[in-house]
């Protein structure tokens, strides 16, 4: 009756402010040594309207609907769950790195055993009713997990009012009390 739909992990980049709590929360949750970084926060310098700014983008696995890594894997070690999470069966992985060369986001990591490991959207946590570790950790509450409808509702709640705000800059003359 309850069909498990693809869950989305959405990063609200308007909110991500580059604290990197998600990176270490992920390491802790997955009990990772130094080496594999399931999620990584990128930092890009931009000039926006003449102003120097930093833009942050955490890049965990996107769990693509049409995953290039899955198609590239020669042994079929990469598979997609019914709820859309892309997983690796380490027993089948031969550590050939094809997944890394085909992933546009550079997500696959390789552990000490040479086999591929990566973000699982905390499938194990989700199976136990918890949010992914990065989403729970984020102090800015920038990482949203849920169905597209749920995420859309949150975003509308956050930003929908923006369009209707009057311009609050300068009201010349008297101060506003």
């Amino acid at each position: 009756m309850n069909e498990k739909k693809q869950l989305t992990l959405y990063v609200d980049t308007r909110r991500c402010m580059g604290c990197r709590a998600c990176e270490i929360a992920c390491k802790l949750e997955n009990d990772l040594p130094r080496g594999p970084r399931y999620t990584m926060v990128t930092e890009t310098e931009v000039i926006e309207d003449g102003v120097d700014k930093l833009k942050f983008l955490p890049v965990p696995c996107q769990h693509c609907a049409d995953a290039p890594c899955l198609k590239a894997c020669p042994t079929g070690a990469i598979y997609k769950r019914a709820d859309g999470i892309v997983m690796v069966n380490k027993k089948k992985c031969i550590g050939c790195h094809e997944c890394l060369w085909s992933c546009p986001f550079g997500v696959p990591q390789y552990g000490a055993d040479g086999k591929m490991q990566k973000c699982t959207m905390c499938a194990f946590r989700q199976d136990h009713g918890e949010k992914p570790a990065c989403a729970a950790a984020c102090p800015a509450e920038a990482i949203l997990v849920g169905s597209p409808e749920e995420i859309s509702a949150t975003l509308r709640n956050r930003y929908g009012a923006e369009a209707s705000h009057t311009n609050t800059t300068r009201m010349a003359g008297k101060p506003v009390k």
Binding site: C19, I24, L28, A136, A137
Partner: peptide, 25 residues
């Protein structure tokens, strides 16, 4: 073995910074 933010805290709302999580290590 693990550390998390306390969701009962009205200001820190169950979140930690990277150092908070690194305390386990």
């Amino acid at each position: 073995i693990k550390i998390e933010g306390d969701p009962d805290h009205p200001i820190t709302r169950g979140h930690l910074c990277m150092k908070g999580f690194a305390n386990v290590a």
